[in-house]
Amino acid sequence: MISPADLVQIPLDDWVNSFVRDFLVPNFRPFFRAMQTPVTAVLGWLDAFFHWLPMLVFTAGLTLIAWRTAGRGVAVFTLIALAFIDMIGLWSETMTTLSMIITSVLFCAIIGIPLGIWSARSDRVLFIVRPILDIMQTIPSFVYLVPIVMLFGVGMVPGIIATIIFALPPIIRLTNLGIRNVRGDLIEAAEAFGSTRWQMLWEVQFPLALRTIMAGLNQTLMLALSMVVIAALIGAGGLGLTVYTGLGRLNVGAATAGGIGIVLLAIILDRITQSLGEKKAVHTPSLWQTLRSMFALGKPGDEEKAGKAA
């Protein structure tokens, strides 16, 4: 049988190889290395902080946050889950994973929210961004691990960069969606009173889109957690590494322990961030109010009454 391959053979792999090896790596490696610097700095700081913080203080802190935002049930769960992680001897790994996750999500937000806002404001930007997001979400993450290793090397930071690529799409999509879904007459009203584009964004669009953006942040966080094991393949540490080495040595116990640690961490973070997005379903709180309510004293719901009385 004749097939197209008899006529033309496309050496795609060679092309990609020469593109990456002979063009990207020699010419842009310093550039990609420089891109790592902020990630390295944030990660280093967070990692040092979480490892310095005594286990009990951290547990108390996170339990309080869970109680303030998501209620008593989640707080109790947080307390027990963190104690359990400590008891199975994975505290240090969990802290490493947590600092990796927070770093990834932070950079996803820094890149994703402005990009989402931009694509909400311009159909042309969305037209370009959307297929890129589709590719990012469908391409198997193993495919981009290779060039990442070639460009960034191995270690924690390349792991985080792989995680950012994997976890970025939902926050861009949902920021875009949230801003596009702000009621047209509110936009019109803001415009009729002479708002500039920035005032419109800051006073109307962003606060009203905040719930959707928080949902995007939650999704991004969950995706980042699911990348933990894959990132361990290229040298990232933490719970992912525990699972990965367990796999390599057929140590089912260690793999299970690491897996449970990831799941528990995921549940805690998911519940807390979800409730941040859902809280005060009617009056979307500003970012500042959200942050303040996390640290304010008193039971959840109190600040809503206090806000009304003020």
């Binding site: 009203a189 803001a190 009173f193 002479g194 708002s195 005032q199 009203l208 009056h283 979307t284």
Partner: peptide, 30 residues
Amino acid sequence: RREKITMVFQHFALFPHKTVAENAAYGLKI
């Protein structure tokens, strides 16, 4: 728009995340 002409809308178009006073003050804030 800021100084001479304002508008009242059919479906009110009040900002749901702002209080009544903040809504009324919107044009001034802008």
